[in-house]
Computed example of a mutant assay.
Amino acid sequence: MGVRSSTWVTALLVLLGLTVVGSVVPAPVVALGPGPTFDTLGEVNGTPVVSAEGLPTYPTEGHLNMTTVGVTDGITTLGALGLWASGNHRLAPRSSLYPPGESSEQVTAQNQQEFDGSIANAEAAALTHLGLPTRVTVGTLTEGSPSAGVLEPGDEIRAVSGMPIPSVQVLLDTLAPAPPGEPLTMAIVRDGTPREITVTPAAHPADPARAFLGITPATSPTQGQELEITLGDVGGPSAGLMFSLALVDKLTPGPLTGGRFVAGTGTVDAEGGVGPISGIRFKMLKAQEVGAQVFLVPAANCAEAAADAPDGLVLARVGTLDEAVAALETLDAGGTPPACS
């Protein structure tokens, strides 16, 4: 065998070895791309995504799709390169989603906690927008916290140490100066029965000077009325805006979408403020793929969205839930809502 032939054989063997390694050895990256999308006006596995009991509801039309970012983990080097070359994915260090020292289960639990918080905020924002009477309730409890076994999810909190609690913000303001270790008396209503309980706050894990009760308060409708948002296997807070819009649509006469296919994204706080999210490009791509005509964009993401918007997708700039409702009403009336630029 000549020197040139030997060189070619060696090169081919090296290439073959690299190919085998690249197709087997996991890369230290994840691929981010378009993820699943769900119509918040529809059903998933036979269960309505958004529902209400004890309140008048009305027929809806069209779509209000929440969008997500898909994460592909456990990919090989060649697989990562293939996804990157497709142009519809971005590679990110695995440690940016799964920090060292945290298990996948811990990350999933944190995402679920953020999702639960977004549901509570979405309900509060919708109730505030609609001007419906509300009460402060216990949303979720932290396992092993001072409130576990004393308070229960759904308990209505009427007063803390004699201070009336008309809103979640008043509750937070009342608890803020409470020192750890000093018992708090709470007037609550459980299953329609008023009662008084005592909770002794612990020191907050992140700041020992602060009191920690281990409850996530929620804004709920009045007794006998209930809002429910159900969507499994989805984490994070970015669906809040679309959940709120679905509630507003179902609780008011006339279809909010005007029959259009509307998609969008954005966090929402209890007062209705819409916050920025990540992965706006991937969410717009998925929205276009499933046939959306309009995409609601958080104001803080507008510049990024406008620079990379898919052809034919109308972008509407929204900074609050009120603005999102107004944008859809403007479209229904034949007008043009504020756009991203």
Rank of each mutant, 00 (worst) to 15 (best):
I197F: 04
T19Q: 06
G139A: 09
H129S: 08
V44F: 00
V168N: 12
L175F: 09
A211R: 05
V50W: 01
G131S: 12
K250C: 01
V138M: 07
K283A: 01
E196P: 07
P56H: 03
G139E: 10
R158K: 15
W84P: 09
G272I: 08
T330D: 11
G214Y: 04
D269C: 05
G224H: 12
L296R: 00
G70W: 02
S23H: 11
G235P: 13
V138P: 06
A299G: 08
P221R: 10
S341K: 10
E152A: 10
L213M: 11
P338C: 06
T47V: 13
L245V: 09
A202T: 12
V20I: 12
R317T: 07
L331A: 05
L285E: 04
P164D: 14
G144K: 05
V20C: 07
A339T: 13
L172K: 15
G266N: 01
T47M: 02
A122T: 12
M163N: 15
S96D: 15
A339C: 09
G279C: 05
E114Q: 15
Y98N: 12
P26W: 00
P146F: 00
I229T: 13
A109C: 09
D155S: 07
L313S: 01
P298G: 04
T40Y: 04
A306S: 11
L231A: 04
K286T: 03
G162C: 14
C340Q: 04
A306N: 05
L64E: 01
I119F: 03
H89S: 14
L247S: 05
A303G: 06
L321F: 02
G154R: 03
G82I: 12
P180K: 00
D173S: 14
L247M: 10
R135L: 10
T72C: 00
A202R: 14
Q113L: 14
D249I: 04
D308F: 03
A92G: 10
F295S: 01
S161L: 15
Q106C: 01
T320L: 02
F115D: 11
S51H: 00
T57R: 09
G154W: 04
A333W: 05
S86R: 10
E102T: 09
A324R: 03
G258N: 03
I119A: 07
V50P: 07
S341Y: 12
T60D: 02
R210W: 07
G35A: 01
V199A: 08
V268K: 03
D191A: 15
P36L: 03
A126L: 11
S6D: 04
L241F: 02
G74Q: 09
T76C: 08
T185P: 07
D311G: 06
A246V: 02
Q110T: 15
V50M: 02
T230K: 14
Q225C: 12
G117Q: 14
R317K: 06
M186D: 06
G144Y: 03
G46T: 04
L321Y: 05
V71W: 10
V189I: 13
A287C: 01
L251R: 06
G70L: 04
I75E: 14
L175I: 12
T37M: 01
T193F: 03
T57A: 02
Q169L: 08
L13P: 05
L171N: 07
G46F: 02
A80W: 11
L13S: 08
P133L: 06
G101W: 05
A306D: 09
V248D: 11
A206I: 07
F282R: 00
A303R: 13
P194I: 11
